[in-house]
Design a protein around this nucleic acid. Structure first.
Length: 806
RNA sequence: GCGGAUGUGGCGGAAUGGCAGACGCAUCAGACUCAAAAUCUGACGGGGGCGACCUCGUGCGGGUUCAAGUCCCGCCAUCCGCACCA
């Protein structure tokens, strides 16, 4: 009892246990497929030159807790880690410092791995993957070939950001306020032929698949909105005195009688086609050039002043009433959504209304409602309005009118029902060096020809310069002896594709590789895929909710359709973590000077403290600000757990006084670990040890339970205590503690006694007490305060009594 | 603009519609110490009262309910993403 423990020394303890776990291969997933499996996954990091950020350990610790708990519950757990190592920053660093990106990557990976290792994660390091490893990207290329063969990869003219001074293509991120980040010169959109993946063919399947998975609601909503399914109609407007039709997509075909003009995107092909008949060509070209300088985001901003130019020389005919209406160009219409042309109904669409007001175009009301004046504001309510000025639609409700007009359009062969998606095809080409080569050659005779599987991996050649060439081609284009090859089809001369794949490629299937990472015959064996898939729990950042999550679901679904993987959806459950901000509540960044390095925290307080703090910092799915004081508080908690050994008694069971509390804590911690509520789980353990301190004693049974519950959060110190105190075996191999529901219930409770909902007294009762007894006790407790007529008596067992008094 | 979220003490944050502020931090007081640190114990939303107590209080304005931080309607403010950063 009076023994004084040696001080808690995380540095020595953590190193010791990390070594033991490595030697014992404590956390290796086994290939014993008869055991129940659990696949926990966190997004693998991009190994940047800055090293680990304190944001990384948040999700890694959270799922480490789940993985460790599952192992203690008898599961065969797969909790892997790897490197998403292709990418722009590495390439830019390599260019600047004249070091091969492969070397930069190797160094960064080593640094990251050391850092992660020092945090004691239970990753199965034997299954580490790296997207830049040719034995890995062989299969990335293999999947691309499958997509190509299925007709889902195609070439298309797409705009890239083009720096007018550097003469290179830029990523969106490298364009700041319309100018090049490096040199400050204007950036324009330049059209280039690029590889595209037809993710739009999978829009419906990707939407459907969401019904069967357990994603947190906001993630599901984001995916649904990103896919952006809408139902409407495609309508053909004839060009006056021309054969061609101008096709528009609209969700409001019911308002066709109100169309007073049309707007096409400045890039619309008809502008070129009818060049000779356009009388204000110079004006049109000037506008187009201006639009090319803006991003889609800037172009479609509603708040901004509308701009546009009427095409002088072309006009359209409204199919419902034969009226001739003018055609304008404006930058808020994008070629990438719908058909690149819209019919404008200013009376019932806000953007059209603003445009019409600015340029004095007519506004014709076709839906009527109460107190509606379309000259004052657009009327967009579809639920209550009735059709007017619309010929045969007059008097119908909007929904009814939609159906009627679509039927009519179909009868007249000038339109049809159409489902449209906001989702756009995936631009899969990058004019960069540090990415997977696209395994395609272009032959003059045979066109685009895929390499055969036996030629994979197509490795990146060594080049002298990683700079993109000044004609917008990838650096690979300068490697003539690599580029010039023979056609696998006809044996004639051919050229290799010089664009590389985007970083998204490698990360779209990495979770499959973890199941069987060393397989050289397939991306993974059928048995491994059948056993491990789907991923049971995948956690990642909100910033990956739309792109990465959707891209990887797309690839997975495609592989399922091709019988490569056993299930249609890759992830059974998806959660998201919040960001960790600086002490000042702002995003951590070098320029703000508020960056915290996890290494410093480990050195000063230990990995267990860092892990505990990051879990305690706040609600897991919300952003939270760093607090140096808060870190110290968590270290103090661990110190208090450590010093409990001085209060240890010989008893193996729970003390009578704390038995209920122990059962409650086991229940609370077990449930909270599953529900992303790590902060309240830790709070519950803090409250428990506060009770031990009050009693100034802890039994062996109680201490064992506490150490087991805390082990997933603070694995090193709990394992050390377990060994020191001779609790037997390894803590990581111990089973998870059980609780009895009946023993979590407090026998005596204090309940609130209210009058008209305001608490006036409290009364201690036995939980078993019946209603009449409790009401009587409550009345007694209130005494004189209970005056007037009791209208109603409410008793919520174990909670509250409320008297409604008049 | 489109989409997603958030708003509770001095601070981070707890609260299946049922006693708002668990747990932690900071602060203050006490114990220990020659002293400090560390540690242990206690107090800790605002206003009022010597006091058992009273009263106000969860961004703002309404509403539903015996009872609202929680549900509904309307605002305000802040943060994040937007397809070539990952």
């Amino acid at each position: 009892m009076s023994r004084v423990s040696k001080p808690y020394d995380p540095k020595q303890i953590e190193k010791k246990w990390q070594g033991i776990w490595d030697v014992e291969k404590a956390f290796a997933a086994t290939d014993d497929y008869s055991k129940p499996k659990y696949y926990a996954l966190v997004e693998f990091p991009y190994p940047s030159g800055q090293g680990l950020h304190v944001g990384h350990p948040r999700p890694y610790t959270a799922l480490d807790i789940v993985a460790r708990k599952r192992r203690m519950q008898g599961y065969n757990v797969l909790y892997p880690m790897g490197w998403d190592a292709f990418g722009l920053p590495t390439e830019n660093y390599a260019i600047k410092n004249k070091i091969h990106p492969k070397v930069v990557t190797e160094n960064n990976v080593k640094h990251f791995k050391d850092q992660l290792h020092s945090l004691g994660y239970s990753f199965d390091w034997d299954r580490e993957v790296n997207t830049t490893d040719p034995t890995y990207y062989k299969w990335t290329q293999w999947i691309f070939l499958k997509l190509f063969q299925a007709g889902l990869a195609y070439k298309s003219e797409m705009p890239i950001n083009w720096c007018t001074s550097c003469k290179v293509g830029l990523a969106n991120e490298e364009v700041v306020n319309g100018v090049c980040e490096r040199c400050g010169s204007p950036v324009v959109r330049k059209v280039k032929s690029q590889w595209m993946l037809k993710i739009t063919d999978y829009a419906e399947k990707l939407l459907e698949g969401l019904k069967d998975v357990d994603y947190i609601e906001k993630v599901k909503t984001s995916q649904i909105n990103w896919i952006g399914r809408s139902e409407g109609a495609e309508v053909e407007f004839s060009l006056k005195d021309k054969e061609d039709k101008l096709v528009v997509y609209t969700t409001r075909p019911d308002t066709l009688f109100g169309a007073t003009y049309m707007v096409v995107s400045p890039e619309h092909p008809y502008i070129e086609k009818y060049k000779d008949e356009i009388r204000n060509w110079d004006e049109i070209m000037a506008y187009r050039e201006m639009a090319a300088r803006k991003s889609d985001f800037e172009r479609t901003e509603l708040a901004k002043e509308k701009t546009g130019v009427q095409i002088d020389g072309l006009s359209a005919i409204d199919p419902v009433n034969g009226k001739e209406i003018p055609i304008w160009i404006s930058d808020y219409v994008l070629m990438s959504y719908g058909t690149g042309a819209i019919m404008a109904v200013p009376a019932h669409d806000e953007r059209d209304w603003e445009f019409a007001k600015k340029f004095g175009l007519p506004i014709i009301q076709v839906v009527d409602g109460e107190n509606v004046d379309v000259q004052e504001a657009a009327f967009t309510d579809v639920a209550t309005g009735k059709m007017v000025n619309s010929g045969f639609l007059d008097g119908m409700e909007v929904a009814e009118a939609k159906r009627a007009i679509i039927d009519w359009l179909a009868e007249q062969s000038v339109g049809h029902r159409k489902v449209n998606y906001k989702l756009r095809d995936w631009v899969f080409s990058r004019q960069r060096y540090w990415g997977e080569p696209i395994p395609i050659v272009q032959c003059e005779k045979c066109g685009y020809v895929p390499l055969s599987e036996s030629e994979l991996p197509l490795e990146l050649p060594e080049v002298d310069s990683y700079m993109p060439t000044d004609n917008g081609e990838s650096p690979l284009a300068a490697m003539t002896d690599w580029v010039n090859t023979t056609c696998p089809c006809c044996g004639g001369p051919a050229k290799r594709e010089t664009d590389t794949m985007p970083q998204w490629a490698g990360s779209s299937w990495y979770f499959l590789r973890y199941t069987d990472p060393h397989n050289d015959q397939a991306l993974a064996s059928q048995e491994a895929l059948d056993y491990w898939l789907p991923v049971d729990w995948y956690n990642g950042g909100m910033e990956h909710t739309t792109l990465h999550l959707l891209y990887s679901r797309f690839w997975h679904r495609f592989l399922y359709d091709n019988q490569v993987v056993p299930c249609p959806e890759p992830y059974q459950k998806r959660t998201s973590h919040g960001m960790i901000l600086g002490e000042n509540g702002e995003k951590m960044s070098k320029s703000r000077g508020n960056v915290v390095n996890p290494d410093d925290i480990v050195a000063e307080y230990g990995a267990d403290t860092l892990r505990t703090y990051e879990m305690f910092i706040g609600a897991f799915d919300l952003s939270a600000s760093w607090s140096a004081e808060g870190v110290r508080g968590c270290r103090r908690f661990l110190d208090r757990v450590w010093k409990l050994q001085d209060m240890l008694t010989e008893e193996e069971g729970y003390s009578d006084k704390l038995e209920t509390k122990l059962h409650q804590t086991i229940k609370k911690v077990s449930q909270d670990y599953e529900a992303l509520k790590y902060n309240t789980a830790i709070a519950a353990m803090m409250a428990l040890i506060n009770d031990f301190y009050k009693e100034n004693q802890v039994t062996r049974g109680e201490y064992k339970t506490l150490l087991t519950l805390l082990n997933p959060v603070a694995p090193h110190m709990t394992e050390e205590l377990w060994e020191m105190l001779g609790f037997g075996g390894r803590l990581y191999q111990t089973s998870w503690p059980e609780y009895e529901e009946a023993k979590t219930v407090e026998k005596k409770v204090e309940i609130a006694v209210q009058i008209n909902g305001k608490t006036k007294a409290t009364v201690g009762i036995d939980i078993e007490a019946d209603k009449d007894f409790v009401l009587a006790a409550a009345k007694e407790a209130l005494g004189d305060k209970l005056a007037g007529n009791i209208v109603k008596e409410i008793y919520v067992p174990g909670r509250i009594v409320n008297f409604v008094v008049k």
